[in-house]
Write a protein that binds this DNA or RNA. Structure first.
Lengths: 107, 107
DNA sequence: CGAACGTGCAACGTATATGTTGCACATTGA
DNA sequence: TCAATGTGCAACATATACGTTGCACGTTCG
């Protein structure tokens, strides 16, 4: 996949493992990498890489206190993605209506 | 990338080339594969594969009349993705508020 | 019929995402 | 000090997304 900065949120949400990590972090349980690794069907190191991807996309941010690193979700990228989709939906919907009107004129 | 059926829309929107195809199809210009291939920096065959991906995700649907295949966008998957994001945003936001309340009690 | 056009499919090479194992470093506590 | 814990990084293997080239099929038009 060609990773694009402006589409980083969509990219992060493509992988069901990352979505599950997000849900668990949001739920407030198993928020350390080791705990996630114990629950998910992948190794702890693989979880680390997914967490890094989510952090790069701005979907989570971590507080590291001592040897434990705890994470919490961020809603902002989600809202931005929602606006992006809403903008597109409005444009496409308008285009579809123009097409419908055009076809109407042809009859 | 591990392709997931329920995340097909996000997957389709990951690639900037596909987003550009969607925008052009929505604009109503260059809606045949050959025309898209002439404009985009990839070959016509590569466009075909992207179009197939978009069709599988339900983001576009095609009418084939004779030897020309014209496509139009569909708004429904976009709206579903928006609802998905809205659902998550609400849950995460609630979790963040619970966390804020908890931290408030600790003081 | 035969040439040109629009399209799709298969084979191939390359880049990269994802997982693993192994090791190293910092922190905690006996 | 030294073992246990939590974490991150590097090397490696595998799967696959993406693009290309080449070819085949159906359609249009002289």
């Amino acid at each position: 996949m060609r990773r694009d900065a402006s589409l980083a949120t969509f990219w992060a949400l493509c992988d069901p493992v990352r979505v599950e990590i997000l849900d668990r972090v949001a739920a407030g349980s198993e928020v350390t990498v080791s705990q996630l690794g114990a629950v998910l069907p992948i190794t702890r190191q693989a979880v680390t890489r997914h967490v890094k991807t989510l952090e790069a996309a701005g979907l989570i941010c971590g507080d590291r206190q001592g040897r434990e690193h705890r994470y919490r979700v961020a809603v902002t990228p989600l809202e931005e993605a929602r606006r992006w989709l809403g903008h597109r939906a409005a444009i496409w919907d308008a285009a579809l209506h123009r097409l419908a009107d055009y076809l109407e004129e042809q009859t």
